[in-house]
């Protein structure tokens, strides 16, 4: 179980070098709308793209720490024999992966920001193509810049898709393992209950023997015995 977990986690770590942070989650929880509103207020600004890029950078930066945390927890689970402790570790890992997945979910802040940034870049391309204020050279330059931005933003949103799929897989694996450890705990509790029942049965048996002996001692001997 834990071997498989480690393999998947390490594969995830090597493949994804960037997702979420608590700082980002705070942004998600507290202030996604002002950012969107600001972008809407300044149609000509690069804000959505910049904001998306900034948030992606934050994700990449903080993922390193989280990565180490996942690594340490996976090792702990590997060496741990106590199901309760394993379960606790898995629950903590699940919480961590859950926060990562929250950042990259389809309705999460980064994904929505990515979609908005892409829409903005495409809208700018369309608007510039029809804009007659600029010389052909200027327009070609601006169009090229927005084309590059749109392409890079699209690539970044594809990375998000990849991260989403992988984190969903890890979360699913963790919850399967959690359920498995839960079953192990139930078996252990069942074994403990069985031991108690056996002890009780033995005590009852012993008491029954004692009672039997006591009855024998107080029963007067029958004539001829």
């Amino acid at each position: 179980m834990s071997m498989r977990l480690s393999v998947v986690l390490s594969r995830t770590r090597s493949a994804i070098r960037w997702p979420a942070a608590l700082v980002l989650l705070l942004l998600v929880a507290v202030a996604p709308r002002p950012a969107f509103a600001e972008a809407a207020d300044k149609p000509d600004a690069v804000t959505p793209v910049e904001e998306f890029s900034r948030q992606l950078d934050e994700l990449k930066k903080t993922f390193k720490d989280l990565n180490q945390r996942i690594d340490a927890s996976a090792k702990l689970i590997d060496g741990e024999t106590d199901p309760a402790a394993s379960r606790q570790e898995i629950a903590e890992l699940r919480e961590l992966v859950s926060s990562l997945l929250g950042a990259v979910a389809d309705n999460g802040a980064v994904a929505q920001l990515g979609a908005k940034a892409l829409d903005h870049a495409r809208a700018k391309q369309k608007a510039l193509a029809a804009d007659t204020r600029y010389t052909p050279e200027q327009r070609a330059f601006l169009l090229g810049q927005w084309e590059r931005l749109a392409r890079e933003t699209e690539a970044a949103t594809k990375e998000l898709d990849d991260a989403r799929t992988r984190f969903a897989g890890v979360l699913r694996l963790l919850q399967t393992n959690d359920d498995y450890v839960g079953e192990l705990m139930e078996i252990r509790q069942g074994t403990e209950a069985l031991r108690v029942v056996r002890d009780l049965a033995k005590q009852i048996h012993d008491a029954s023997d004692m009672l039997n002996n006591f009855i024998n001692t107080i029963t007067p001997p029958r004539p001829g015995t």
């Binding site: 997945l101 929250g102 389809d106 309705n107 898709d161 989403r164 799929t165 969903a168």
Partner: peptide, 15 residues
């Protein structure tokens, strides 16, 4: 409130 893109082969993950 979320609309799901049913064409995505990898599926949609929503919080």
């Amino acid at each position: 409130s979320a609309r799901i893109d049913t064409t995505k082969s990898e599926g949609t993950v929503l919080r």
